[in-house]
Nucleic acid binder design. Structure first.
Lengths: 232, 232, 232, 232
DNA sequence: CATGAATGAGGGTTCATTCAT
DNA sequence: CATGAATGAACCCTCATTCAT
């Protein structure tokens, strides 16, 4: 009896804490999604909390059970965004062996992603470089491919940091363009081609690589980016 | 008598108002300079006014004799910054006939300017695209040279807007880099070369053009950028 | 069968409820002890509940199974403290017949108690008069001895209330001193002597009485005061 | 002309800043007076600011032009209270040569002051020792007279700190009594007598000294203590 | 009874803007 | 025009209390 009773109460405790953790995770996700939308629409420095909790439909105090400051929230969103990009784009990128193809695939896919999910583009534009510099995207994935390209002699650019600036800068600029005016249909490929050229790939080769078929960008239904805050 | 008296008082008024206007201009300049520093150091959304008036050494109320809102101030600073860049860089640029050389000269000069006056780089990075999109720099000067290059077949890039993104994006990114880490000595030329390549100039030619001697960037003593707010 | 079953289940209930009551008592005690420490360290108006439940190692909700409000908690602690003082000090006091000796014994013992258990002194200092005015200590025990002393002509002070002020006030002040700076070894006896003098006992007699050996203050191991919250 | 003009504008500046300083001083005084009342009525730890600004009739933000925290405000009030006591009582005290007479005069005057201005008594009781330990009253004036008494052999108490506890403790306790119940007419003198006895003055002498005529406590019309917050 | 996430009233604090001098 | 005290809307944040599990 004692044993059973004990095991019963142990189970109860486990159950309780499991349920609690699930609730926590759910609320956190709700907040991050809402914050993405709010940051995208109102900018990073906006007096955000009110809007976020309204969007998420939770109470003021709840927010502070998860994030103590505006900044902490922004970092959380930026991290999630960064992971999400990797989760979506990297599978396509790593199908390619050639570093030049990888870069081309990466940048054109990200551009297409931004076209499909303007909320994402807005977030990056409003958040500036900081919105991409958290997480491993800009600290690992991009440098990995730059490094490989340099090592294999695919790129002639003299400095990896310069290469980085010539990839990330245009991407943010392109996002801005996407949000403000219509662009020609081949914009993503043209963009990729120019980026390759800037790294030192010849025009002809850059053209060929950027015209390759890399596969379509598949965004899961439950993705952060699918949430627009307009339905329930 | 009446006439004389009138003319006397008119003169007096003229004198007074000329002096007054000069004083006005001086105070305004003090405020704009101070604001540039403050925006650069604390970002656009900072609790700006307190800092600006402290930096400028004027009273709170004085501020409102010159700018009615925060935003008006930012626009004023952005305009002055934009004009100042043109005033400093365009004389060098227009010495060149070749649009490719003009672009190369423009971007490398601007990078050098940012290296010499970090306050300027900070202002642009913190202020985002908006800090460059006021004034004629990005709306006239840069498109002018892009257009010329396309018209003359110097560039093969299919879309002027894309060209724009591939110039302005990297510049902001480069500013960020300059502020964050040391760069190699040839960074400005390398940067210019890559930009030309991205627009479709061949590597060899891009290299030659970017190595040309465009003349040194001369910043007048009284320039906006010379003010760092540390001395009187 | 019915009878047996009933009696069986009654026993079971009794057993269960006895166990339950013991557990209840234990949790309550844990909370009171924790609260004493928290009130002592952070004052009465501190954001108490968080600290108390953390100190006691129970969940937020559990607290409200025992005390409905902050105030109820404070009163509970004050009562327990008051009873505890009486439980510890009164046995020594009542050994004395002479009211003057009782007062001397009482005040010097309380001072020694405060020296040995600073948590107690802190609680009184932070809680103010209220922390002593609950329970029978100040409403019965002290007035009892004052009254006896006046009745027997041991004290010449004209007003019992004044006598009370001249005992309790200095005690709180002394607690404050004990917590703030080192005191001479004879502080408790000197203190007692002065208190007697203030009540009208002559200097010589006050000196003799306050130098009597009243026995040592014995604090049970399980006392409220022994708990400092630092071990398990 | 120039000279006159200059001197005129200098005068103007002086005038402006003098007027500003006067306004500041006035507002500060309003806040301190209001805060005294609020602290007295609601305790030191009350959520005070709302009440203070309402009482003072100033805007929320004005408060923060003068005090950044609750504590800063409390200290300011405590200091003003302390100075005010000294301003009112010390002239009477210093008329006496004998340290015993000084102490007697001091304590009985302070008790009378508390009787006449309950707001003052309340502030001290609610604020605890801290409300008297700012300013020079308890750090200089009282120790000065204790020291003199010990040096001249008027007191036999072995420890100045103990003497301090036997003066300040009873005073606070007496304030509490004054606020809660009626006291006999001779309470101030009786109190003073007992205090002297506790310091080691003989009963007979203590009696004589405490019955001396020390002069009446004169409170200026504009005193902090006269303000009750009930009129405009 | 224990648990701990959610709540939201009730405070605190800032800072762009006004206005009397 | 310069000054700087006063303003108050608009935020920020905490923490006692509730309640579903």
């Amino acid at each position: 009896m004692d044993i059973l009773q004990n095991s019963a109460s142990v189970e109860a405790i486990d159950h309780r804490s499991r349920v609690a953790m699930e609730r926590r995770e759910k609320t956190r996700a709700k907040l991050v999604r809402s914050a993405l939308v709010v940051f995208a629409r109102h900018g990073v420095d906006a007096k955000v909390i009110d809007l976020v909790i309204k969007q998420a439909g939770v109470a003021r105090g709840t927010f502070y059970n998860y994030f103590r400051t505006n900044d902490e929230l922004f970092v959380a969103v930026a991290e999630d965004v960064s992971s999400e990009i990797i989760r979506i784009v990297d599978p396509l990128v790593t199908r390619q062996e050639d570093p030049a193809a990888r870069i081309a695939c990466g940048v054109s896919s990200v551009i297409r992603l931004a076209q499909a999910y303007p909320i994402f583009a807005e977030f990056v534009v409003r958040g500036g470089p900081a919105s991409l510099s958290t997480g491993s995207l800009t600290s690992e994935v991009v440098p990995r491919d730059i490094g490989a390209g340099l090592a294999l002699g695919r790129f002639t650019i003299p400095d990896p940091q310069l290469a980085f600036d010539l990839i990330v800068g245009p991407v943010i600029s392109a996002f801005y363009t996407i949000l403000t005016r219509p662009v020609i249909e081949t914009y993503p490929q043209d963009f990729a081609q120019s980026v390759l050229q800037s790294l030192g790939v010849t025009q002809e080769e850059a053209r060929q690589i950027s015209r390759m078929e890399f596969g379509t960008v598949a965004v899961p239904e439950d993705s952060l980016f699918s949430y627009t805050g307009n339905s329930s």
